[in-house]
Design a protein around this nucleic acid. Sequence first.
DNA 1: CTGAAAGCGCTAACAA
DNA 2: TTGTTAGCGCTTTCAG
Lengths: 343, 343
Amino acid sequence: MKAQKVTLSSIASELNVSKTLVSLVLNGKADALAINKDTQRRVLEKARALNYKPNQVARGLRMGQTKTLGLLVADISNPFYARITRTIEHQAEAEGYSLIVCSSDENESRERRLLKMLLDRQVDGIIMTSTMRSTETLSQIVPQGFPLVLFDRNLGNSNHHFVGVDNVKAVQQAIGHLFDTGHENIGFISLTPDHISSLQDRRKGYEAAFAARNKSLNPAHLLQVDYMQLKEKQYELISRFLKEHPEMTALFTANNNLAVACLKSARELGISIPKDLSLITFDDVELFQYTAPALSSIAQPLDEIGKVAVQLVLHQLTETGFAPRKEILQTTFTIRESSCCRE
Amino acid sequence: MKAQKVTLSSIASELNVSKTLVSLVLNGKADALAINKDTQRRVLEKARALNYKPNQVARGLRMGQTKTLGLLVADISNPFYARITRTIEHQAEAEGYSLIVCSSDENESRERRLLKMLLDRQVDGIIMTSTMRSTETLSQIVPQGFPLVLFDRNLGNSNHHFVGVDNVKAVQQAIGHLFDTGHENIGFISLTPDHISSLQDRRKGYEAAFAARNKSLNPAHLLQVDYMQLKEKQYELISRFLKEHPEMTALFTANNNLAVACLKSARELGISIPKDLSLITFDDVELFQYTAPALSSIAQPLDEIGKVAVQLVLHQLTETGFAPRKEILQTTFTIRESSCCRE
DNA sequence: CTGAAAGCGCTAACAA
DNA sequence: TTGTTAGCGCTTTCAG
C-alpha cells in the first residue's frame, strides 16, 4: 500500500552510520557539533535520494510538542469565522504550525468534547470562541497554564488571554446614531444562548444608548432567537416580531446571520428598508455593500484579530507565565443605505 | 507548567498492574479477554480519579494512524469552501477524525508545501482541491494508494477519487437560457490559473452553448483575471472590460467572487443589471438572494459534496484498492433578478 | 567527530 | 486472567 517507509534508520543503515548522526545532520545541528562536511553531504544526499520525510508524529511524541494549534469556533461556515480562520491559518503556517479546526455549533457539550479532543491530540495551544458560561468550566478541561487565547467573546472574570472588540461601545454608538437621526422605537434582535459575552455586551450597548439619553426602552422591542433553531424557525420568529411591532422605525441585529434573516423577513412582509425600518447590524460581510439595501454595519478588524490571536498563543509557548492580556481592537461603523433619518 | 502527566504507567503502577492491562481495559478489549470485572472497575475508577487522557500522538505513532484528515482548499474564507468545510468537519468528527485545514491560495508551490506538511504529519487521508496541472505532479508527492479525494476540480486523466459537478452542462444550460431570452453578445469572466478543470469546464460550457446554436463567439468577450491579483486590480480589469464592451447584454461569471466584483463594477459604472446587462454566476451564496439585484446562479450541492468526499476517503481507509470513483452531483440553476429578457 | 542507548506513551505479540 | 517485552520513529544525553 504505502511505499516503503524511509526512516532515519534506513538512511543510517544504508550509510553505515548511526541514527544520531543522521538526525543531527538533518536538523542542522551538524555544524555546531563540527561534524565532517563530507559526512554531512553524504547524509543529505542519501536523504534526498530516498526521499526521506521526517515523521512528525514520532517527532512530536519525542519532543513533547506537535507544532499544531487547535482552532475552535462557533461555526466555520459563518463568514466572520471563516475570514478569521484564514488569517490564523496563514499566520500559524508562517510559524511552522498547523491548525486543527472545529466548530462547536454554540453547543457547550460539543465544545467540551472538541476541546478534550484537541488536548488529547496534544495541540500546543488553542484559539477559541467559547460558548461556556464561566471560566471555571473551561479551567476544568484546560490545564492551568496551557496556552489558550479566547477571541470574540470572553468569559466572566476570565484569567485567559483575549482578543476582541468593545461591543458595548460599538453598539452604543450605532444606536446613538439612530437616535440622532430621529428614531425612538428601536428594536434589537439577538441570539441565545444569551450568556455569550459579546452578545450580552451588544445588548448592554443598546441599553446604554437608551440610558444615555434618558429614554426608556420597551422590552417588547427586544427579541432573542435561538442559535440552533432552524433557519426557517428563526425567520418565522423575526417575521412575527416585525409584524407585531410596526411602531419600530429602526432595528439593530446582533450579528450577520440575523441581518440576513431580517432582510428576508422585511422583504416578504413588504416592509421597506430603510423607508419603514432602518436596519443596522453587527458584523460586516463583503456582500453587505451590495444587498438591497446595502447594510449599515459595525465591522470588526478580522485580520488583526486573527494576527493578535496567533501572536498571543505563540507567545505563551515561549514565555511562561506571561500575564493574561486583553487586546481590545477598534470597530468601524459604516453607514449605508439601510439606515436613514426618520421621516 | 502543565499538570503532572498521567500516563498508562502512572495508572498501572498505582494499581500494581501492568500497562497492558490498563490499556486493554481502557480500550474496551477487556471483556473479549475475559478480564476480571473487578480489576476492570479498579482500572476505570483510577483512570477517572487521575483524570487520565490517552495521548493520541503516542497512540498514533504506535498504531500507524492518526485519526486525522487533511483538508486542503483554495481559500477557506471563500463561502463555497467554508460551507463545505463545515460539512466535512462534522462528518469527520462523527467518524472520530479531526481535520487539519489549509488554504493553498491557488498557489501551486504553496499547495505542494502544504501537501507535504500534511503527509509528514501522517494524516490518514486527504481531501483537496488541487491547483496542479497534472496528476503526475500530485503523484510525485502523494504516495501511490494513499487515501485521497479531489473535489470541485479534477486533474487530467486522474486516477483519483473525485466528487464534483458537471460544470460543462451546468454552464451550457445557463448560457442557453440567455440565448433563449434573446441575448447574443454574452460575455464570460473567469480566473487564472486557467488549467483548473472546473474553470476550464465552465468555459467549455460557454463555448458549447454557442456551438449548439451555431453562433460564433467573440473572443473579446472573454476575460480572465488572476486569482492572486489584488481585489482592486481585478475590479479594475473587470470595469475596463465592461466599459469597452457596451455591446454585451449578458455576462456569465465563473465563480462567486467574480460576481461580486461585477456587481461592484456595474454599480460604479452606472450599468444597470439586468436592464443593461444580465448577469448569471456560478456558485450560489445565501446573500445572492438579497443583493441588488438578486443574482441568478448555479448552485452546487455543498452538503452532499462534503459528505461524499468524507465517505470516499474513509472508504479507502478500509477497503484497499477500491477503484477510483467519480461522483458527479447535480447543480441547481436559479433565475433571479439579475438576468432577464433582452428588451 | 560519531555511536550506543534510553525513552516519549502507547499497543500487541507472546508468555506465563 | 495478567505480565513481559518489543518497538512505532525520533531526539538527546552521555561515552568514546
